[in-house]
């Protein structure tokens, strides 16, 4: 589904991602872990199409198509979703209107008929239930006045609404209490299917108690330096990132 080869990314001439490779197949859940400033969020932003980053080398294929040549909205319409680390507020725009506009645009792109108002509201209700988002949230403006937890739940709700093929969740667990964490994780698990894939970016192992990844990647200094199964996260939790540094240091030596 997603194939990243030898990716190099810079911002203002400073290289942040260096020769990164990553393969994600349908039906898989990946976790990317690593200390601050190693390029995890940059990777997610580049996948989504954030223009401030410059891809200097390498390729990203999404279902065989060159993702880097697609405009931001077309990536989204083709099924790429980014769960924001800091969801953006849009005052005066109701969640209902926001989602309606998004779904209309996506369906049009895919050559599907628009949903009727009735169908849409029913669909929205189902998805809200799925991710345990209180119905009153839908009438509020996009993320405006939402608590930190509500914002993150709202990201998962939008993911449920848009039914993406590939989701990057950028530190969706940060700042969540344990209940909110469970709600977010449950949402992700319920949305999992053989046809889609999820990449969760996280600092902490605790999210992985709820979302069980097929692969865990450790990112350090702009590269994936170690890949393993879910147990890698536990080792990392136990030994800390210094362990990686040490091991890398040994490798480099």
């Amino acid at each position: 589904m997603l194939s990243i080869k030898n990716l190099h990314v810079s911002i203002n001439g400073k290289e942040i991602i260096k020769a990164l490779d990553l393969e994600v197949n349908a039906g898989e859940v990946h976790a990317i872990m690593g200390p601050n400033g190693t390029g995890k969020s940059t990777l997610a932003a580049v996948i989504a199409g954030r223009e401030i980053f410059e891809v200097t080398e390498g390729e990203i294929l999404f279902e065989g198509k060159n993702l880097l040549e697609m405009p931001i909205e077309d990536r989204a319409r083709a099924g790429v979703f980014l769960g924001f680390q800091y969801p953006i507020e849009i005052p005066g725009v109701s969640m209902t209107n926001f989602m309606r506009t998004a779904i209309d645009e996506i369906r049009e792109y895919r050559g599907e008929k628009p949903m009727t108002a009735g169908e849409f509201l029913k669909y929205m209700k189902e998805k809200q239930k799925l991710v345990e988002l209180q119905s009153k949230l839908s009438g509020r403006s996009v993320n405006e006045g939402f608590s930190g937890g509500e914002k993150k739940k709202n990201e998962i709700f939008q993911m449920a609404m848009l039914e993406p093929k590939l989701s990057f969740l950028d530190e969706t667990d940060s700042g969540l209490d344990i209940d909110a964490l469970r709600v977010v994780a449950n949402g992700v698990n319920k949305l999992k299917s053989p046809d889609n894939a999820t990449v969760v970016i996280t600092h902490y192992q605790r999210l992985l108690d709820y979302i069980v990844p097929d692969f865990v990647h450790i990112m350090y200094n702009g590269r994936i330096v170690k890949t393993g199964d879910k147990d890698l996260a536990l080792v990392l939790e136990e030994k800390g990132y210094d362990w990686i540094k040490k091991e890398l240091g040994e490798e480099l030596n």
């Binding site: 989504a48 909205e73 990536r75 989204a76 849009i90 645009e105 848009l162």
Partner: peptide, 9 residues
């Protein structure tokens, strides 16, 4: 960017 990432032009 947020809107575009949701598929909105």
């Amino acid at each position: 960017f947020y809107c575009q990432q949701r598929g909105i032009s």
